[in-house]
Design a protein around this nucleic acid. Structure first.
Lengths: 138, 138
DNA sequence: CTGTATCCCCCAGGATACTG
DNA sequence: CAGTATCCTGGGGGATACAG
């Protein structure tokens, strides 16, 4: 693990002058973005945005995730400073996961995206129907 | 292709009462979200947000994408109604890709996320350093 | 309960060649 | 230029067993 080839430089660009090197493979933010938008990252963050959860609660909440992937995802997010892991030294062990302030900020942006897409799903579905009919025979 | 198992129902939830079934595997918006946030989807949309581009221009812009993946990505985005494909019947062929209004909206949300992360990359890097040092020996 | 270690399968996706 | 078709490999990720 910790195999990212990240170097420490990136551009601080404005919204209008988009010259960021996210397009470059070597951009360090690309890996974080991948953790956030990855298959399980987004769902995990979404779940934690509602409330702080324990490992198996998360596992139940995020439909379809395996122990291994949840573990990996959580580690990546914790490493990036999006998730805080709080282990209580009790028996049986109890570990709570919660979003950091940064994590919450990212979660909100992510939710903005999700809502944007969900609110337009009828359009999407219609577009898909059109597309499939046009070249559906083939 | 067009192998999504999407059914046409989803929840229209508010930002506060998050009861969306995005967490469910069967949620139709999940596939669109995957197209948008996928490895190449986001970068492609980001590139097209700046300007309308042709196939090979895109290929050069999005560092590391293969012909096959760009083609696939573009088809998925076009099908979902995010990208408009305009083929001019000239020789040699010329095809321009541009974002639809919906595509631009999604792009903006996406850029919001990207900027949020990029603007905090120093934190991320610091967090990673801390994390790696803590359990770096292992 | 909270994970880590292992095995292994499958397909995302890269390389290459070819067509219109 | 704008793609499609084919082949092939790496690693994403599931299942299971095990450990603290």
């Amino acid at each position: 693990m910790a195999s990212d080839t990240d170097t420490g430089s990136m551009s601080t660009d404005s919204f209008d002058s988009l010259a960021f090197d996210v397009f470059s493979r070597a951009c360090p933010s690309r890996s974080t973005l991948e953790h956030v938008t990855g298959r399980w990252g987004g769902l995990t963050i979404g779940a934690l945005y509602e409330e702080s959860l324990r490992f198996n609660e998360l596992r139940r909440r995020v439909d379809g995730v395996s122990e291994k992937m949840l573990s990996q995802t959580l580690h990546a997010l914790e490493r990036d400073g999006l998730v805080l892991r709080e282990a209580q030294p009790v028996n049986p062990p109890r570990v709570d996961y919660e979003l950091t302030p940064f994590g919450r900020e990212v979660a909100e942006k992510l939710l903005g995206l999700i809502h944007c897409v969900e609110g337009r799903m009828d359009e999407v579905l219609a577009s898909r129907a059109r597309y499939d009919e046009a070249r559906g025979g083939r």
